[in-house]
């Protein structure tokens, strides 16, 4: 395996969890809901995924459990923000705190155990193509899923009636309500889709990235995913670009260190965060990029009048 190929493979592994979580949040935000609890849902996905895979020995059951863990937590969020009309920002923060604590409690007896590794699904013949074979056709199922989700959400959001409803709920909930759409129900569904994706992303961490369970193993990735959604201006394809760029910056920080230039490692470690801030600034400052796609009702509470 040559060096460039190794770096590309490493970048894909580092980017996939970000991409998975961010794509779910993108759909949630398209429906006008800001869920800051991505980190909490992700870490729940990680612990549920690990626990189920370890107990059954089957990583695919682990993936399913991870999804369920994320959905369960997002359901909490939906009840509070949609049914009880609580502040979305505060509820999202609470979700993160709860997820981190609860996952630690659940995972206590699973710390330090060797996990079940999600195997690569190499596509016959194609994966043996030199260089691009392993990169394109030698990944595990979650990497393929993340790619499928990008195209899937793009199609659903912009080419189908369901997508139209989601976007209209996110852009103007009052008129969507007036048109007879059930705003709350649509948002419930989108929040739980977001939870499922975050759970998937967590499961990727504890089953594929580093097959083990450690407390707080998401290590801030949920927040990066949130930033990526803004960076993408709520377009799935741009989201993919953003996620892979971020993954590349992250890995290059380590790569440059190993070359031995003597730059303090703390500066290289903070590089991804600096880049995220700069990206946010560039995207947010550009009105033509953001105005068209930003869901106008994002973060606003909707209580239907009867």
């Amino acid at each position: 395996m040559d060096a460039t190929q190794a770096v590309i493979l490493t970048i894909i592994t580092a980017s996939t969890p970000l991409l998975l979580a961010a794509i779910g949040e993108l759909v949630t935000e398209r429906s006008g809901v800001l869920n800051l609890g991505v980190e909490g849902m992700m870490v729940m996905g990680a612990v549920c995924g690990f626990a189920a895979a370890y107990t059954t020995g089957n990583p695919y059951i682990g993936i399913l459990a991870g999804v369920l863990g994320g959905v369960a937590l997002s359901f909490f969020f939906a009840i509070l923000t949609q049914t009880l009309a609580t502040n979305q920002v505060a509820t999202g923060l609470a979700l993160t705190l709860l997820g981190l604590g609860l996952s630690g409690l659940i995972g206590e007896s699973f710390v330090g155990l060797p996990g079940v590794k999600l195997q690569q699904l190499s596509i016959p013949f194609l994966s043996t193509i030199p260089f691009i074979g392993p990169i394109l056709f030698g990944q595990d199922i979650l990497v393929y899923t993340s790619i499928a989700l990008i195209f899937g959400t793009t199609y659903v959001l912009f080419k189908t009636r369901i997508g139209l409803i989601i976007r209209s709920v996110g852009d103007n909930h009052n008129s969507a309500h007036a048109l007879g759409y059930n705003v709350i129900a649509v948002r419930y569904a989108c929040i739980m889709f977001g939870g499922a994706c975050s759970g998937l992303s967590g499961a990727y961490l504890s089953l594929a990235y580093t097959p083990q369970w450690i407390e707080n193993m998401t290590a801030g990735r949920g927040w990066v995913a949130l930033a990526l959604v803004v960076f993408s201006t709520w377009l799935p394809k741009r989201l993919a670009i953003g996620a892979y760029l971020f993954g590349a910056v992250w890995i290059m920080g380590l790569y440059v260190q190993a070359l031995g230039f003597g730059i303090p490692s703390q500066f290289l470690s903070s590089l991804p965060y600096v880049v995220t801030i700069i990206a946010l600034v560039i995207i947010s400052g550009n009105k033509t990029l953001t105005r068209v796609n930003t869901p106008a009702c994002i973060g606003q509470t909707f209580v239907p009048d009867r």
Binding site: A3, L205, M217, L254, L259
Partner: peptide
């Protein structure tokens, strides 16, 4: 000998990435 500092005693994700980078560099 190539050295990578991960600025943590315990960060499996980053340690894994560092290992991959080092292996990638030979």
């Amino acid at each position: 000998l190539k050295v990578v500092w991960v600025n943590s005693w315990f960060d499996p994700g980053k340690e894994a990435d560092a290992a991959k980078v080092l292996i990638g560099q030979g």
